[in-house]
Structure formats: structure tokens, C-alpha cells
């Protein structure tokens, strides 16, 4: 168990930049845009109406309905959470693609393999990093970003004579929204597991360009399937493989919508219309689909193959 902990710590050392700094940098960017936005509107306001409208709106904020304010904050928190989940998927995509390839490329695999750590442990440590450690670090980054955001807002309110505690802080549903993010990340990991498994396999197997293997092979399979049906069955609408890929990518990048069915009536499902609790319930309901089980089987096979190949592939 000590070994596994050390392996996870190792991943953290190597990828701290991607897992910890990325969410914090996005947070800083959002806060900077907020401040810039505020400064420019104030400037326009000064020029156009001598600053009257901001003063008015500052006062007006306090008379807003608490439910409305709460809704706006929910939408903001869930929208940023959804953005973070999307970024998390992109970060993990490249992390996994390099996870069993980079050390073969620079030869350091010969050092890792000189230690009493089995290849199964190594591969599983990459998987646990992707499914648990990185989401936790992103959660931490999201919380810091949200707090920074609200603090900046509070200062702006104070400058405009509004009380940030009554207007803002008392209306924030921290537990619901952050809870939705955490649950969303875990459900994202479940939906993305076949993709993660495939990436681990590509990373473990590839001799030169894991990206080509990981991306182009599924696309080629999809194309072959499409043209096979078009030519031999005269069916131009069979896009089975592409549909599956799009389905998985959709659920993996925007887990908040993973609870919806793929039929037309739910097409306009907008996660920001819902509260955190409703989202969690919807996502959990979405797990009970046969696609989820096929995905888990596929993930198990690809991860096992990644471990198998890792045992004898030491160079690129």
C-alpha cells in the first residue's frame, strides 16, 4: 500500500503543473476578466451618465429577490464547474496519452523498472491519478477560484455601497454546487473510463506517436464501418461507430448532461436550468444504462492489455 501511495505521489510531482496550476490559472483569468469588465463598464458609465446607474444598481441589488440572486449564482457556479470538467478531460487526455509513453521515450522506464514495483501497480496508479487524484485537485482549484471570484465581487459591492453578505454570501449554495462538481467528476470518470483505458493502451503500445494510434484508429474504424454499410448495404445513415464515439465524448466532456437521454425531447437540456441537487440526481439516473456496462467491459480489456504490453515494451 505504501508503494501505491508513493506511485500516486510520483504522478503528483510530475504533473503538479497540469493538475493544480491549470484550474488556478483559469480561476485567475476569470477574475481578471471580471475586474476588467467592471472597470470598463464603470468607465462607460462615468462617461455616459456620470456614474449614476452603477450607484443605482448597487442600491438596487439589495432590493433583489434572494431567490433570483441565488439562481444567478447557481448558474454561474455550475457553468464554471462545467468548464472545469471540460478542461479536466482535456488535461487527462494528454496526461494518459503520455503516461506510459514518455518514460519509454526518455529511457527513464529503465530506472522505474529497476524498483520492485509491478507493471500492474504502475498502470493502475496512472488510472487512479486520472479518475481520483486529478479530479480532487481540480475540485480544490475550483473552490479557490469561486472564493476568489466572490471576494472580488464583495469588494465591488462594497465600493458601490451594497452589503455583500446579504446580497451575495447568504445566497451561495456552496455544498450543492461544489457537491455537484465532485459527483460530476466521478461520473465523468466512469463515462470516460473506456476512453481512459484506450488512451492507456495506446500510450503503452505505441512505438512512435501515441496520439496517432489513439485518435486515428477509432476514426478509421468509424470510416470503414460507414463505407462498408454505404457500399454493401446501400445505407448512408449507418454511423454506428461515430455515434458511439460522439456519445462517449459528450458524456466525458460535459458530465452534467450525462443523465439525459439521447432522444429529441431532451435535446435542449440545459444544465444551468437545474440546481446542483437536481443535476446529481439526473447524472446518477444516467448511470443505469447498458452503454455504461459495455464501456466498463471495454475499459477493463484495454487496461489489461496496457498492463500486458507494459511488461515487455521498454523502448520506443
Amino acid at each position: 500500500m505504501n508503494t501505491f501511495k508513493a506511485l500516486l505521489e510520483r504522478e503528483y510531482w510530475e504533473h503538479r503543473g497540469a493538475f493544480l496550476k491549470t484550474p488556478l490559472i483559469i480561476g485567475i483569468v476569470i477574475v481578471v476578466f471580471l475586474i476588467l469588465g467592471y472597470l470598463t463598464t464603470e468607465r462607460f458609465d462615468q462617461v455616459l451618465t456620470n456614474g449614476q446607474s452603477i450607484e443605482l444598481s448597487g442600491k438596487a441589488l439589495e432590493s433583489f429577490n434572494a431567490d433570483d440572486v441565488s439562481n444567478v449564482i447557481d448558474v454561474f457556479m455550475l457553468a464554471t464547474a462545467s468548464l472545469y470538467q471540460f478542461v479536466l478531460f482535456v488535461v487527462l487526455f494528454f496526461f494518459l496519452l503520455g503516461s506510459l509513453y514518455d518514460d519509454r521515450k526518455d529511457g527513464s522506464i529503465l530506472f522505474w523498472k529497476s524498483l520492485p514495483v509491478s507493471d500492474t501497480q504502475t498502470v493502475l496508479s496512472k488510472l487512479v491519478t486520472a479518475t481520483l487524484v486529478a479530479p480532487l485537485l481540480f475540485t480544490f482549484g475550483l473552490i479557490i477560484s469561486h472564493l476568489a471570484f466572490f471576494i472580488v465581487f464583495s469588494v465591488i459591492f462594497l465600493l458601490n455601497g451594497a452589503n455583500p453578505f446579504t446580497v451575495l454570501w447568504s445566497n451561495i449554495e456552496f455544498i450543492n454546487n461544489w457537491g455537484a462538481f465532485v459527483v460530476g467528476c466521478l461520473i465523468q470518470a466512469l463515462w470516460a473510463l473506456p476512453i481512459y483505458g484506450w488512451l492507456l493502451f495506446a500510450s503503452s503500445y505505441s512505438k512512435r506517436r501515441p496520439f496517432m494510434l489513439a485518435v486515428f484508429v477509432p476514426l478509421m474504424v468509424g470510416l470503414v464501418w460507414y463505407w462498408y454499410n454505404a457500399i454493401f448495404n446501400y445505407n448512408l445513415l449507418k454511423i454506428g461507430v461515430f455515434k458511439t464515439l460522439a456519445f462517449l465524448l459528450g458524456k466525458s466532456t460535459v458530465p452534467f448532461t450525462s443523465g439525459m437521454d439521447t432522444n429529441a425531447e431532451n435535446f435542449g437540456f440545459d444544465p444551468t436550468d437545474h440546481t446542483g441537487v437536481e443535476l446529481i440526481q439526473s447524472m446518477l439516473r444516467g448511470l443505469n444504462q447498458s452503454d455504461m456496462y459495455y464501456g466498463l467491459v471495454f475499459a477493463t480489456i484495454t487496461i489489461a492489455l496496457a498492463i500486458y504490453v507494459r511488461r515487455f515494451r521498454n523502448t520506443t
Partner: peptide, 20 residues
């Protein structure tokens, strides 16, 4: 291999320690 590595060790090639 993992069991064996408790009892033996090796340096295969120069400078294979991870750079980061």
C-alpha cells in the same frame, strides 16, 4: 520482476533517471 527487484538492482544505460 517486481519480486526479483527487491534482491537485485541494475543500471541499464547512462542517465536514465527521469529529468523532471
Amino acid at each position: 520482476r517486481a519480486d526479483l527487484m527487491k534482491e537485485i538492482c541494475f543500471i541499464a544505460d547512462v542517465a536514465v533517471l527521469p529529468k523532471w
